[in-house]
Design a protein around this nucleic acid. Structure first.
Length: 624
RNA sequence: GCUGCUGUAGCUCAGCAGGUAGAGCACUUCCUUGGUAAGGAAGAGGUCACGGGUUCGAUUCCCGUCAGCAGCUCCA
């Protein structure tokens, strides 16, 4: 299906939607992909064919163009070109027009088989040296084919649609650089992304979905809702959390500590800077040197800012002898780490240089491993479902380059499997995807827009306990080595909250919304009553925005709507006299009048059980 | 880091073939006392990202730096 993209698998085909910034946040198929009506060819075949059509248009418009690969991808297709001039958006429109013309002119697509030499001869005749290289990537013994339409032909395994006479709808979306064969040491080509569908409706729906993605972009909402900022003066990749997002984070942290405390985790705090020695014992200096910041000198000793929290937790473990009686130890830290990321990869809150992991380490015996992992699986479920995420779990097994005895790997992998089985967690297999120091379970969550990202992880580690010579005294009096489990559920506060902004489109559930209740007086003389509402709400620990400044009620309602405040309480003569409030929920224009105490009880209930919705009111009368 | 693009008021953006700038929203003040998404008027706000260069003169042209955007490569 993607013959000419042989040699490239996976990652790049997940990047077709603008606004996507990281591999851990791949856009999945938009809903339209699934909705297509029965066609003789899969959508990907159409898209791949359309990429050929695009290539032929580029060949015509930009003589001398060299061609790379042009596969169908998740949400469309791309083709890489080496053309002398940088392509801009206007060029895309030009190419689209030429595509439409040549689709009419040169409708049928035909396939021919050639020998390896013939293939190279044909490509050499056109001076297509990337394509000649591509021929060499085709395994010996495989049939080599060209597909053509009109006077354009392309090395390609197919399949393709039979003819551009079939109705189809396409759009070219963006252009950006891409290294030839994904190798940064090779020349950079220009990649044009596009998409195609069988019907105009599907194309429109997809474009609309892309618009929605753009509207929800956490960077856009970050400005619009006064959530966070980054500053040139402070350097890229460092997030400044504004009070609004601070409130969101605090709520999440409280929730996080709550569920962790329930599961027997204890808080620890470790320094941000340590002597380099610590990281050379841990091996980070060697393994992760390129992501660590340069040393700073303190009294002639090199110190480093921490890229990970684990060595710190290990220091605590090692302060005294440990008995089997006290295992498992579960130590948690919202630990802020700093990692060097190349400037070009920084992306809002999703890819930064300083971030806070919701980290924890479990020190346990091999016998305890499965139960401990099962506990984390529970915790992952509790946490993710609170935000309305569905997820898939992947068991990542031993990679080629790894350390540790086979028996230990087998034991830990078995423990992961057993834990999953215990919790009825289906596991997909990620063969050889484990860390070099142990197997793991990764969780991929699916957000409200159908995009997938990876945050939660449970990793067994045989390496660090060994490097730091961790021991515990077992029942039999022998010194034994504990297993260390690294686990993060949210991943990092930055990435998780950045993703949450998009998942909720800025409309946070009540429990973590920046402002939870707006109080709006109808006239200035209702200020006093509104102040009393504000005080009572604040006393109940709600974040309240009492809009008491002079100004019109309508404007205040508009502001609260803009800020996506879950509840608006509006109060005038009647409400002040009766001790009631007119409650208006976000996303509806309806209001219900109820006694303030009733509202308070309702809101507290929604908040305290961290409901995703804003509830319903059945008892109160609808305001006239 | 690489390729391409971008940086003008708090935000969204005009403008300038080189003669130091404008709109809407937001903000301030005054008027408006309004029952569910923008009442009216006036005002304030800019070293046109920063540093060099070319020029009589640079926000505009050139170079560099910083930051951002779309990707590539790599990760929570």
């Amino acid at each position: 299906m993607r013959p000419i993209s042989r040699g490239r698998t996976g990652t790049s085909e997940t990047r077709s939607v603008p606004g996507d910034g990281s591999r851990t946040r791949r856009p999945m198929s938009s809903p339209q992909d699934a909705a297509q009506v029965a066609q003789p060819y899969p959508l990907s075949t159409l898209r791949h064919s359309v990429s050929h059509l695009m290539a032929s248009a580029v060949a015509k418009l930009y003589p001398g163009a060299q061609f790379g690969f042009g596969p169908a991808v998740e949400n469309g297709f791309y083709y890489d070109f080496d053309v002398a001039v940088p392509l801009a958006d206007e060029d895309l429109r030009k190419i689209e027009k030429e595509m439409a013309r040549s689709a009419k002119r040169a409708a049928p697509m035909t396939r021919i088989e050639v020998t390896r030499d013939e293939a190279k001869r044909r490509l050499a005749a056109k001076g297509q040296h990337y394509k000649i290289e591509a021929v060499d990537l085709i395994p010996e013994g495989e049939t080599i084919t060209f597909y053509s339409h009109g006077d354009w032909e392309d090395l390609c395994e197919g399949p393709h649609i039979d003819s551009f006479q079939r109705p189809f709808y396409f759009k070219l979306l963006s252009v950006a650089g891409a290294y030839w064969r994904g190798d940064e040491k090779r020349p950079m080509l220009q990649r044009i992304y596009g998409t195609a569908f069988w019907s105009q409706e599907e194309l429109d729906a997809h474009l609309k979905w892309m618009e929605e993605v753009k509207l929800r972009d956490h960077r856009k909402l970050g400005t619009e809702l006064d959530l966070f900022s980054v500053h040139g003066e402070a350097g890229g990749g460092f997030i400044f959390w504004h009070p609004n997002l601070g409130a969101v984070r605090r709520s999440i942290e409280e929730f996080w500590w709550e569920v962790h405390t329930r599961r027997g985790y204890k808080p620890v705090y470790t320094p941000h800077v340590s002597r380099e020695t610590l990281f050379s014992i841990s091996g980070h200096l060697e393994k992760y040197a390129d992501l660590m910041y340069a040393p700073m000198e303190i009294e002639e000793q090199p110190y480093r800012v921490k890229p990970m929290n684990c060595p710190g937790h290990i220091m605590i473990y090692k302060t005294r002898g440990r008995s089997y009686r006290e295992l498992p130890l579960r130590w948690a830290e919202l630990g802020t780490v700093y990692r060097y990321e190349r400037s070009g990869v920084l992306h809002g809150m999703l890819r930064v240089r300083g971030f806070t992991q919701d980290d924890a380490h479990i020190f346990c015996t091999p016998e305890q491993l499965a139960d401990e992992i099962a506990g984390v699986v529970d915790l992952v479920h509790t946490t993710l479902s609170t935000f309305g995420f569905e997820y898939t779990a992947y068991l990542a097994t031993r990679p080629e380059k790894s350390i540790g005895e086979e028996a230990v790997w087998a034991m830990a992998t078995e423990a992961l499997k057993r834990a999953a089985a215990l919790k009825n967690l289906p596991l997909e297999l990620d063969e050889g995807g484990g860390a070099f120091y142990g197997p793991k379970i990764d969780f991929k969550i699916r957000d409200a827009l159908g995009r997938e990202w990876q945050n939660s992880t449970i990793q067994c580690d045989f390496n660090l306990p060994q490097r730091f010579d961790l021991t515990f005294t077992d029942k039999d009096g022998l010194q034994k080595r504990p297993i260390m489990v690294h686990r993060a559920i949210l991943g990092s506060m930055e990435r998780f909250v950045g993703g949450l902004i998009e998942h909720f489109g800025g409309r946070f559930p009540l429990w973590c919304a920046p402002t939870q209740v707006a109080v709006i007086p109808i006239r200035e003389e209702h200020t006093e009553y509104c102040q009393s509402l504000e005080a009572r709400l604040q006393h109940a620990l709600f974040r309240v925005d009492a809009k008491l400044a002079p100004g019109h009620m309508n404007t205040k309602i508009k502001e609260a709507q803009h800020d996506r405040v879950p509840f608006m309480l509006i109060a005038g003569d009647r409400e002040a006299a009766e001790g009631t409030v007119a409650v208006r929920r976000r996303d509806t224009r309806e209001q219900v009048v109820m006694p303030f105490a009733e509202f308070l009880a309702l809101a507290e209930d929604l908040r305290d059980r961290r409901a995703l919705d804003l509830g319903e009111t059945t008892t109160a009368r609808v305001a006239s």
